[in-house]
Computed example of a mutant assay.
Amino acid sequence: MLNSLKQFMRIKIFFLGLLLHFGNSASAQKLHGFKGSLIYTLGPDTSAIGNYELNGNEFMLTVVSMSPNVNVSKLKGIFFPDGQLMHVEGINYNPTGGKDSLVYTYNLNYARDTTSIETRSGTRSSRRKYPVKIMVANNLGGDAIVFMPALLANFAPKRVGDSVMSSHIVFNSARKFMIKKTGSQKLLLGSSVMGMFTIFLDKDDKVQSVDGMGTSFNIKGKAGAYLNIDSVIAVNVKQLHLHPRLAIINKLDSVKTTINAANVKIIYSRPSVRGRVIFGEVVPWNRIWRTGADAATKIYLSKPLYFNGSELPAGTYSIFTMPSPTGFTLIFNKQANIWGTEHNADYDLLKIPMQTQSLDEPVELLTFAIAPADNNGGVISFSWDKVKASVGFTTAP
């Protein structure tokens, strides 16, 4: 009789625990159900509009890109409980392209400790495998990557100071990806390549706005209600016909000179002002700046140069700048062939204060110059918007 009673109590406890488990799971699933939209701006222009939706661990994204042509990405997928990607499938198309509007399809699957990503465009296909779980990938369609924060915020840690780590697939490799809780209603999210986005949350821990200034995208996002995305597409296609847009291109350029048999060449991409506030916003104060766009700006030296008596040996270096309201510092880094947001201070070789001056007329495109100067030397400078920064060098100690 006693044994039967004990067995009954064990069964009762088991079922009570099971009910509690299902109750908690149902509650968690309910918390995971939401939808909304994000509108991203690049300076004065709207660059992308999209809807996002999360039901349990299943999600959907529809993203309309507008720079310069209207392009649409639609994807759906499944997260693991920790926010990493289990499965994604989608398409990318141009709504003005008629029967040939499909640009490519994509498919992601995680199995056997490997993430596989396959893309197809016409008769061409590509399939790559990565031995990691991931949270974001560049090749999942258009601007979809910058809409993932609205979904991934749901998987952020709860305690301020805590972070979760995953991977970002970019340049056919896996880079570290992080979501960090930096305040009661604020997250830091990103990787070394995409840069770190600041995510502001509302009282329900849903995304309210996104600050991507200083990242590879230099955009700002505002969350809102779920949109009629077909109407968004139709309106923008009509606008495109009436007012064609110019492509936003960071023009690749170079400048070179020879001073006392020392060849000096700088290769860089030239972002434009485009009506934006540059220093203090597009280029945040007191943060490392790539001093260009896209890949890191590079300098080639055939012979050593000397800055305030400090030697920069012959070779190839990346150039970065630390801008502040009180002055700029030029940084030469030994990692030359990197993306512009991948600065690693461990490889900084030389830091030189720069002279700055205000310009009467704004310079639309970032412009580098190398000019000869007295005392067997020269001056390296760059001008953008209404700021010119320069630093002198010599070819001998």
Rank of each mutant, 00 (worst) to 15 (best):
N308V: 06
P44R: 15
R124V: 04
A137V: 12
S191W: 02
F307P: 00
Y110A: 07
Q84L: 05
R276E: 13
I266M: 02
H343G: 01
G142N: 09
K386E: 13
I91G: 05
I266Y: 02
F217Y: 14
N375E: 10
H343F: 09
G195P: 06
T367D: 10
M194L: 12
F22S: 12
A371C: 06
K351D: 03
N228L: 13
L75W: 07
T119E: 03
P81L: 14
V103I: 14
G83M: 10
D202H: 05
N92Q: 12
T356Y: 01
P271Y: 01
N250E: 11
V387E: 02
S383V: 03
Y268H: 09
R124Y: 04
G17M: 12
A28F: 09
R270E: 13
A371N: 12
T182I: 15
I352W: 02
S67T: 14
T198R: 06
K251Y: 08
M1F: 10
P131S: 04
G190D: 05
G212P: 01
V146A: 04
V232A: 07
W285N: 12
L365I: 03
F200Y: 14
S192G: 08
L20T: 10
V264R: 01
L330E: 05
I13K: 11
G340K: 08
V164M: 08
F197M: 11
F217M: 05
I380L: 09
V103P: 03
M135G: 12
S310T: 05
G142E: 05
N57H: 08
N3M: 10
T257L: 01
A261K: 14
N376A: 00
L108I: 15
N69H: 15
G183H: 04
T394E: 04
G190H: 09
R159D: 11
S254D: 06
R128D: 04
H241K: 15
S216M: 09
F328K: 02
V136G: 00
F14T: 11
V273D: 03
A153G: 07
G292T: 11
G43K: 14
V64C: 13
V277N: 13
A336K: 09
G221F: 07
T316G: 04
V387Y: 01
K206E: 07
G195Y: 06
A369H: 02
T198V: 11
Y52V: 05
T326K: 10
N139P: 00
N138L: 11
N71H: 12
K203D: 15
A293P: 14
V63I: 14
Q208F: 07
Y306W: 05
F34C: 14
G50D: 07
V277M: 09
R276Q: 14
H87R: 12
L75S: 08
M354P: 03
T119W: 00
N3E: 11
D348H: 12
G378L: 00
P68L: 02
I145V: 13
D204K: 12
T198N: 08
V63H: 02
A144Y: 05
D82G: 06
S167N: 13
F80I: 04
P68D: 02
I380D: 01
N376S: 03
F80P: 01
S167E: 10
D294I: 07
G214S: 02
Q239C: 03
A293E: 14
V237L: 05
N228R: 13
N172L: 10
P44E: 15
L19M: 14
G50C: 08
